[in-house]
Design a protein around this nucleic acid. Sequence first.
DNA 1: TATAAAAACTAATATCTGTTAGTTTTGCAC
DNA 2: GTGCAAAACTAACAGATATTAGTTTTTATA
Lengths: 196, 196
Amino acid sequence: MSKLKALNNISRKDLIIKNAAALFRKKGFSASSMRELAMSIGIEAPSLYNHIGSKSELLQAICIKIANTFNTHLDLTLLSNASTIDKLDVLIRFHIRMMLDEFDEVFVANHEWKQLEEPYLSNFLSQRKNYENRLVQLIREGTDQQELKGIHPHVAALTILSSVRGLEFWQRHRKELTIEELENNMVHHLLNGLIK
Amino acid sequence: MSKLKALNNISRKDLIIKNAAALFRKKGFSASSMRELAMSIGIEAPSLYNHIGSKSELLQAICIKIANTFNTHLDLTLLSNASTIDKLDVLIRFHIRMMLDEFDEVFVANHEWKQLEEPYLSNFLSQRKNYENRLVQLIREGTDQQELKGIHPHVAALTILSSVRGLEFWQRHRKELTIEELENNMVHHLLNGLIK
DNA sequence: TATAAAAACTAATATCTGTTAGTTTTGCAC
DNA sequence: GTGCAAAACTAACAGATATTAGTTTTTATA
């Protein structure tokens, strides 16, 4: 087993977390049982506890990882010298890629964070609030510098974040467009509008 | 009790459904217990069954009602002689009002439909797909008639629906804007874009 | 092949779940 | 006040839940 682990560099614990993300996405955290998770791996439920501490630890791992990924990317983006519009472009595209590439994890973080226990719940929420606030600030700066229209920054930020989040429903239509076309369409809609 | 019911026209069953919507929104359907629901209304859990058939019946009632409300409104809107843009305007504003006025129910329908049992699950999904398809068709017509840009209709529809759905996060900011200002900002963003 | 650790197993527990059965209380009509 | 129906109650059940304890099997190393 440790030879396998060395080969493809994925530990038993990581496998459990990955399967948990898939299961939690499909049925929701509370409606998912440890027996079901174990079965998806091909072992009995108690065997899971040789690798993990508890069910809620799995949710914590998923949510924390996603929150960190997004915040780290925002850090980097805000540091650049690009214009506000270009920064928004980069951020929107990153959200879209994440939504498609790390679908299960992002979905679970978006939908099941309510089931986190303290202090992970507070932590997750403050990270998300922080992310939102910095995005709002970016939009405000764009408005001040006459790059953007005077749309209320909170509303604009919410619209952008909600739109990309809504890509959870895009799976059905994946074949219609390439990822790049999808990105281009969505960025264009959010930045330039729908009306000709 | 029946005098009370006659007076304010809300039956015991309706009260239970209303409290269920609030509870399901706060904790999720699977994480909500019938004992908790009963406590929120001041009775014991088994007493609920004098008024309702089962827990899942509550979720069904909530989801069906919301799906019907949206589909009925779309029926009416599509019948009018207004331009595509005006129709989109009306639809977006209706979603926003619903999200704010019937918050618990809309939230639960959006988030917990997965926990529906058959045939309610299939029914709900086909109603939602139908709604989405008709919105896509409306946007396609707007493009054909040169009212709208050539943004991929599915992407545009998804962006619009996701944005209004994201108003579940607006509760925190309710005091910042009136509902009408919120509507105006969001409609303007989605139709005319963010860039000046 | 012997050893030790990793990881699987079985058995069991306490708790919580939705729901039922049967009984008592409540509130209104006469 | 009597009677009746609505709606509350208590007691209880069968099944599922996450998790623990203790044991056996598997695997890698020496």
